[in-house]
Design a protein around this nucleic acid. Structure first.
Lengths: 150, 150
DNA sequence: TTGGGTGCAAAGGCTTTGCATGTGA
DNA sequence: TCACATGCAAAGCCTTTGCACCCAA
């Protein structure tokens, strides 16, 4: 994913931060697995294959940085792990975060986009005076595959 | 909230579990604060006023139990604490969980009900074959009060 | 050269668990 | 009576932090 790497480098330089092999390797791991939600430990294990000397602390520090830069998205499934996936934002415009379908049977996570919430947010702004700037939607249920197995 | 307490007792007995003072006290704390989202520590501090000998472990064990029984709802704001609030379910029918508006400025949490998601869920079932049974929606932004302060 | 970055180990902080004692039914 | 519940303290577990060394710019 050279696009991501180039953009990544420019953002870092812009902030006076350094482009290190570790940071590039971590971004590469996530970039090469779009839609995959990885824990810090999983990222650590993957990066170690190409960069054996990396430390877990660096992984934590880097995913926090990448998250702040908006390059990766955070997902919390309340199972004790915070997961990360490569961001889908392609422009500088406001990009509504995609939502997640979580299968209660197999644990698989599906993503979907929907603009339905825009109406809701508009209504909330009108009635409650609350200005929504971000949202997180998680739908739990049973996926097609697991329903078929019954 | 005698209604909650009665229902609570019947559910426990039904499962062969005991109605202890500690459990009743914890439920009472949450019942008397509808819409308030409390951490385990906050519940612990409140319960200690009426039941000084209670242990923090009991609070954790009880909120887990109450959550499994569907009497209280869990809310995770990703700040390191899991919060709980008294459930709003009043009947045995499927009751869609209410949603939360979280102010990024003052941290206050507002609740709202909306049936908008039903359309979305129906569409997801039709197009993806995914059967939604529960959902969690969090909207982040700026509340009326904080917007006024600017 | 040099200030940010990294690795390692230790510390943090919320939550769970083991075990002996207590108690509701 | 007796299985379930509680309190205390210790352990678990994910994540963060301190510090000396390293390295991209």
């Amino acid at each position: 994913m050279p696009n991501n790497q180039e953009y990544f480098k420019s953002v870092l330089k812009q902030r006076g931060l350094k482009v290190t092999n570790q940071r590039a390797a971590i971004l590469e791991v996530l970039s090469s697995r779009p839609g995959k939600h990885m824990t810090a430990e999983e990222i650590y294990d993957c990066v170690k294959k190409t960069y054996p000397d990396i430390g877990l602390a660096t992984v934590y520090r880097t995913i926090q940085l990448l998250s702040e830069l908006g390059l990766i998205d955070k997902l919390n499934l309340d199972d004790g792990y915070v997961r990360y996936e490569i961001g889908v934002k392609k422009s500088e415009e406001v990009c509504h975060r995609h939502h997640h379908l979580i299968c209660l049977d197999c644990g698989k996570i599906y993503a979907f986009q929907d603009d339905l919430l825009e109406n809701l947010e508009k209504r909330i702004a009108e009635t409650l005076g609350f200005e929504v700037v971000d949202h997180e939607v998680k739908l739990y249920g049973h996926c097609k595959k697991c329903l078929g197995h019954k």
